[in-house]
Amino acid sequence: MLKSIPLTALAVSLLAATVTPGWAAPDKLFGAINERLSFMQSVAAWKADNDKPVEDLPREKVVLDAAREKAVENGLSADNVTLFFQAQIDAAKDIQTCWIERWESGEARPQNVPDLIKDVRPELLRLGNEILTLLAESPVESSDQQAFTEALTVECLSDGSKSALFEGLVDVHD
């Protein structure tokens, strides 16, 4: 049976200092990044079903321009956020390419693929905004790398993409 231990004033103030309002733990940020990348299998299936290439440079420009704008709104370096979002885009393309190669090799493709424009893209936008807000609240330190690596569970995400994403995260606050 656990005993209740009274907290001293010092213990209470130390606890309060570690739970600062508005401060989100990096694990919430890492979860949002993982969730955003988890949509890439559906994106790849939609693109394959609609004979669209993985790379869509005009769309990438829209995403990067929006990230730059939101970065400034959140008090972040637009250039550093752009580098991080480019790493996310590159990781997304790698994941999509991996899935398409698997399907071309005979692996079963998903059925009932959600529409990229109506269903998936709004979620990607929501998550992109959430990631930017969390980035402003949660600086990522090099000591967070193991937690980051463990949080990213998306199939087809390469170690190189994980490294580039993490480096981008750490650099956002430099």
Rank of each mutant, 00 (worst) to 15 (best):
P6Y: 01
L10A: 09
L10W: 00
A11L: 14
V12L: 08
S13N: 05
L14T: 11
A16C: 08
A17N: 14
T20R: 10
G22H: 02
F30N: 08
A32V: 03
I33T: 05
N34S: 02
L37Q: 00
S38C: 01
M40E: 06
M40F: 07
Q41H: 06
Q41W: 06
V43W: 08
A45I: 10
A45T: 04
W46Q: 08
A48I: 14
N50T: 09
K52I: 11
V54S: 15
L57C: 04
P58R: 08
R59F: 07
V62T: 07
V63M: 11
A67I: 04
A71M: 03
V72W: 11
N74M: 10
G75D: 08
G75Q: 07
L76A: 08
S77T: 06
F84D: 03
F85V: 11
Q88I: 04
A92K: 11
D94W: 05
I95S: 02
Q96L: 00
I100P: 09
I100T: 13
R102L: 13
S105F: 07
G106I: 06
E107P: 08
A108F: 11
A108Q: 14
N112M: 15
V113S: 03
L116Y: 12
L116V: 03
I117R: 04
V120R: 12
R121C: 01
P122C: 01
L124S: 02
